[in-house]
């Protein structure tokens, strides 16, 4: 049966539209960047849980440094790697608020390693979102602690050599072993199903914070097509084949 497209595009048939918690600013991320999808999911969760006025975010240094321009909640900008320390202060001063950090792997697992481990070990009642694209995206795709063995980056053009560069760091596994974390999971946003799952994880993390459960830690295994020098679609495929074996998706801890 043929039906005019404008018959379908009516207000009563609307099933998905851009979240009202997102601002009108056009995101500066490269085409296909995982940051955009995670930002969108974060806004949708805050909207659906009706926590726009109750949530305080902490932005990192890295490609997501301007996140405060995109999600319309209160924010603080942390020095490089210090988001969990700042979030600790915010949550302790305002335990009535929901506090969420958002960091890349260079921020969270390199310069900010100490802050990450100590906040998770103390069991600060915060949510930490960890975007792991395996490199320093913002500064030109340099090798990060998370860079896989053999993975090319601008400072390991022939691939990471463990003998020279050391082993990749699995930060999520480390924080799962700490007593302060209650929920530790690894997600992705490369397919619609993965994005929906990521959304459920983030909702659960908000629920945990409400119940004073300690630190909820969500790694999002991500792509950086500019740094990886592939198209976004090729990057997703590369991530599935190469990142997932080292950083497998699923819950590491749920207490």
């Amino acid at each position: 049966m043929s039906i005019d497209i404008n018959e379908i595009k009516k207000a009563e048939n609307l099933v998905y539209k851009k979240s009202s918690v997102l601002t009108d600013k056009v995101m500066h991320y490269c085409p296909g960047c995982s940051h955009g999808a995670v930002n969108r999911i974060m806004a949708e969760v805050i909207e659906e849980l009706d926590l726009q006025e109750e949530t305080i975010g902490v932005t990192p240094v890295g490609c997501s440094v301007l996140l405060y321009n995109y999600i319309d909640i209160d924010w603080q900008e942390a020095a490089h790697g210090r988001a969990p320390a700042l979030a600790t202060a915010i949550k302790r001063l305002r335990p009535d608020k929901y506090v969420v950090t958002y960091q890349g792997d260079g921020d969270l697992a390199a310069i900010g390693t100490a802050e990450t481990i100590h906040a998770c070990n103390r069991g600060e009642n915060i949510i930490m979102i960890f975007i792991n694209n395996g490199i320093y995206g913002m500064t030109g795709g340099q090798m990060a602690p998370t860079t896989l063995e053999g993975m090319k980056s601008s400072t390991s053009p022939f691939g990471r050599d463990v003998a020279r560069d050391g082993n990749p760091l699995n930060m999520t596994q480390i924080v799962a072993s700490l007593p302060g974390t209650s929920y530790v999971t690894r997600q992705s946003v490369h397919t619609a199903a993965a994005a929906r799952k990521m959304k459920r994880s983030l909702k659960k993390a908000f629920e945990n914070q409400k119940n004073n459960k300690g630190t909820s830690f969500i790694e999002v295994v991500s792509t950086c097509s500019s740094g990886w020098k592939m198209t976004p679609a090729q990057s997703n495929k590369w991530m599935v084949e190469n990142m997932f074996p080292s950083y497998p998706l699923g819950d590491l801890k749920d207490e």
């Binding site: 379908i8 595009k9 009516k10 048939n13 609307l14 099933v15 995101m27 955009g36 969108r40 397919t191």
Partner: peptide
């Protein structure tokens, strides 16, 4: 079909989705 899979992966929130059920 209005499944919204496209909107779920769009990093720039550019997609609005509509869906209706047609009985024949």
């Amino acid at each position: 079909t209005g499944c919204a899979n496209c909107a779920m992966v769009c990093p720039d929130s550019c997609i609005t989705v509509y869906k209706m059920t047609i009985k024949s």
